[in-house]
């Protein structure tokens, strides 16, 4: 009996890396990039198997390329860490960090002010009843009406327990406090938060406003999330994507969508890259 279950487990293990990410992919793309991309299954087909990548991982480690900073600041790594955080119900930490990074780039004082206030309200202050996990401050400004996928996610927690027959789940979650009311989602408490609050109130806003708090959040991600991330399927997928990057780009990485026209020298066509989902224009010239 146990043997059988283990067999099943390994089977689903090998599958889960690919399927979960593929399932999450569109969902996340919409959240992170704010665009719809469609499933990128061709990319997944092209990836090498993880078991072939031991050597590759070793060399990357020797070059010190698998550190939190390098993985987090790289598009694929950042995307996968976010995916992992979403499964940990802690996506806000990553969104907070990226929002603070964007905030630091702001030059205009009035923009700084309003963004600082927004970041504070969304991440540092107490969680409000209409808080949406995983929504960046800048995104909120862009599309005021909340899209369907976020609505869906809000209901997810309730639906999870529908099987329990707990219809009064919502009532229960309101009743039970666990001392958790009035806390923020990034897990920083006390003096640093107070300081920011005072500074915003007294209008002393500069780039270093969130430094102390973002330092703490980074530490949380670095010391607790990142080691666990490295154990997960997401890390394996990261390595596989990384390996693909080392290979030269060839015509096989593109899908021809349509031809735009032809002239005396050759063809012009639109092609889509599997890897980045970006569109390219191809000029094909005949060899003579």
């Amino acid at each position: 009996m146990i043997k059988k279950s283990q067999k099943q487990a390994t089977k689903s293990d090998s599958k889960d890396a690919v399927t979960t990410v593929a399932q999450n992919k569109e969902f996340l793309n919409r959240i992170i990039l704010g665009k719809s991309h469609g499933n990128n299954t061709k990319l997944l087909e092209q990836l090498p198997k993880f078991s072939e990548l031991e050597e590759f991982e070793k060399t990357l480690r020797e070059q010190n390329q698998i550190t939190f900073a390098s993985v987090f600041h790289e598009p694929v790594g950042n995307y996968l860490i976010r995916t992992y955080l979403l499964s940990q119900h802690s996506i806000d930490k990553a969104i907070f960090l990226s929002d603070v990074e964007l905030f630091k780039k702001l030059k205009n004082p009035s923009a700084q002010k309003s963004v600082a206030q927004k970041i504070f309200d969304q991440f540092c202050g107490a969680e409000t009843s209409n808080h949406i996990p995983g929504l960046s401050v800048f995104e909120h400004a862009k599309n005021r009406n909340i899209p369907w996928y976020i609505e869906k996610r809000k209901n997810l927690a309730v639906n999870d327990h529908a099987s329990e027959g707990a219809k009064n789940m919502q009532a229960a979650s309101q009743k039970i406090s666990l001392f958790a009311e009035g806390t923020n989602n990034i897990g920083v408490f006390g003096k640093p938060i107070q300081k920011i609050h005072e500074k915003i109130a007294s209008q002393k806003i500069d780039e270093t406003l969130f430094d102390e708090v973002s330092q703490q959040v980074t530490n949380d991600l670095l010391l607790d999330i990142f080691p666990r991330f490295q154990q997960s399927a997401y890390h394996r997928l990261y390595l596989r994507c990384k390996f693909l990057e080392t290979k030269p780009v060839t015509i096989k990485h593109f899908d021809e969508l349509r031809s735009l026209g032809h002239g005396a020298f050759g063809l012009v066509s639109t092609n889509k890259s599997f890897l980045t989902n970006l569109l390219f224009i191809f000029f094909t010239i005949k060899k003579q």
């Binding site: 001392f179 958790a180 806390t183 923020n184």
Partner: peptide, 30 residues
């Protein structure tokens, strides 16, 4: 401080235990 949740299956004799470890800080309790 733990963030989120870790789970692990343990096979003790014939029984299978799935243990879930969660964060205990106030914001984690939500």
């Amino acid at each position: 401080r733990t963030t989120g949740m870790t789970e692990k299956e343990f096979h003790i004799k014939d029984a299978v235990f799935k243990v879930l470890d969660v964060g205990g800080q106030r914001n984690e309790r939500k």
